[in-house]
Write a protein that binds this DNA or RNA. Structure first.
Lengths: 278, 278
DNA sequence: TTACGGCTATACGCACGACCTATAGCACCT
DNA sequence: AGGTGCTATAGGTCGTGCGTATAGCCGTAA
């Protein structure tokens, strides 16, 4: 019997469902199933009655639950007793460049509020780090991904451009449109592929990496750009955002972390936080 | 932090030594070292000061110890709560045929006393089983071995034989001696090898498997046999036990169990019991 | 009735880690 | 100085916790 199984048991008990428990524990459903089976075996007791709509706890499970809760509570209390104090917890956070500061800063603010004495270091997502905030395409195979939000990519057009008055944007509108490229960006790659397929040639005015630069350049009238539909962009009076008719370019942005660190408490609070920001 | 590390910590704290803790936990010393280091890392605290004569606990360790003891105590209490009652614990014990009933029965008696409601099944040691009582030569590579006793093999001679009066037995005395072979027996194999080397031919009267049979046959005067120097044989007035001059044939008999089951409570009580019987 | 969606259990493969043995390095003792 | 007992490190093996993919089951909707 180990604390891990007990925590999983508690989650199943509280949610009344193996799948739901798996979600709250940031773990796959079969893993919870296996852990519960193992626990049932070591205790030589049936803890849940399985049915198609979830599971219902047996009398033994109801007896076990408060004991388990007490035990795991004590365990984390011991952890806290030794970990709190002046010692600060260090967190290296890999941040995809194209994410944009505004939206992330809310998250980081909340994180530093929740974790006292946090020493946060922001690095590129390809550097060694504890957590990464990246798009879902960049997740490594040994990483777990918790989505935070989904960006809809739209064409950001300077107010003065004729296209900014058009009802809708179609692919042919890109023909000889001054354009600001931001890379790496999968949505842009898709767009380029679509344009190539339609034999439309566009005019590159700038190659930059962050959304902030692109935003400024569009605002300054340098050219149009392909940007996520963030509120901070939408609310500018010098930029118009328009969807490209017939195309939906999206990317899922979220938190990625090594699977074997899923039980790390710092990782867990981050994951919970990110789920809450959705 | 897991219960395993805490239990190892308690053992180190109580014995004041990593090596001693390893012995009481039936585990290797580096494993304890690693677990303690890991615990120190997750608690972000130095728990022991290492020196050449063992380890001394720090103030933090003294603070942790009662908390840890409490936690692991609660955990085992939960286990007991669910495991005790009318449900019986089943144990399949593989018993080497050549071990002899008398000595083992003491051990089994004590075991059934300590474990209430034990359902014991004795099987051959090559059948699937939870524990095996075998000699040290037969231990598999994924098994751990806890010695119980060491048998000294001696020549058991019927009282009436001339050799029973001899001062000492030498290899040449085996020449045309009526002999009772018991196999499999490594000590016997060694003896045979020695006899072959000395060009002595002996006379086989019987081939049997258990010590009990051999004992009876020797007692009945059928022939001599190579037997461990147990009290139950030594005390018979129709058998004389004599060491073979210049040779020490021994075998270590003990408890063997799969390594990954070393933390199983039933396995542990058996191992402790066996250590105590030495 | 069938089709579908959500639930749990099973199958199977991978990778992390707990464990082993062997050995180095250190302090104390003879 | 060499021996003994301790702890730490190195390197390899095996068990198991976790993943994805999938089967099977039941309740609901078409």
């Amino acid at each position: 019997m180990d604390l891990r199984s007990l925590r999983y048991f508690e989650a199943v008990f509280e949610t009344g469902s193996v799948s739901a428990a798996a979600r709250t524990c940031f773990i796959s459903q079969p893993s919870i199933s296996a852990a519960i089976q193992q626990l049932e075996q070591t205790l030589d007791t049936r803890l849940f009655v399985r049915h198609a709509r979830g599971v219902t706890p047996t009398a033994e499970a109801k007896k076990l639950y408060p004991l388990s809760k007490d035990l795991t509570g004590n365990a984390t209390a011991i952890l806290r007793l030794f970990n709190e104090g002046p010692a600060c917890t260090r967190l290296r956070l890999g941040l995809m460049r194209s994410i944009g500061a505004q939206r992330i800063s809310l998250l980081l603010k909340e994180l530093t509020r929740r974790v006292p004495n946090l020493e946060l270091t922001l690095v590129d997502p390809d550097e060694p780090c504890d957590l990464r905030i990246i798009d879902s395409e960049s997740v490594a195979s040994n990483e777990r991904f918790v989505a935070i939000w989904t960006d809809q990519y739209q064409l950001a057009i300077p107010k003065g451009y004729p296209l900014s008055l058009a009802e809708k944007v179609v692919l042919s509108d890109f023909d000889s449109l001054p354009f600001i490229q931001r890379s790496p960006c999968l949505a842009l790659d898709e767009l380029v592929a679509a344009l190539d397929g339609a034999d439309v040639s566009y005019q590159v005015r700038a190659n930059i990496r962050t959304v902030e630069y692109a935003q400024s350049l569009v605002g300054a009238g340098v050219g149009a750009a392909f940007l996520p539909d963030w509120e901070e962009i939408r609310s500018r009076d010098d930029i118009v955002l328009k969807a490209v008719d017939g195309y939906a370019f999206t990317r899922k942005v979220g938190l990625a972390f090594k699977r074997h660190r899923a039980n790390d408490s710092l990782v867990q609070t981050c994951a919970e936080l990110c789920q809450g920001m959705g």
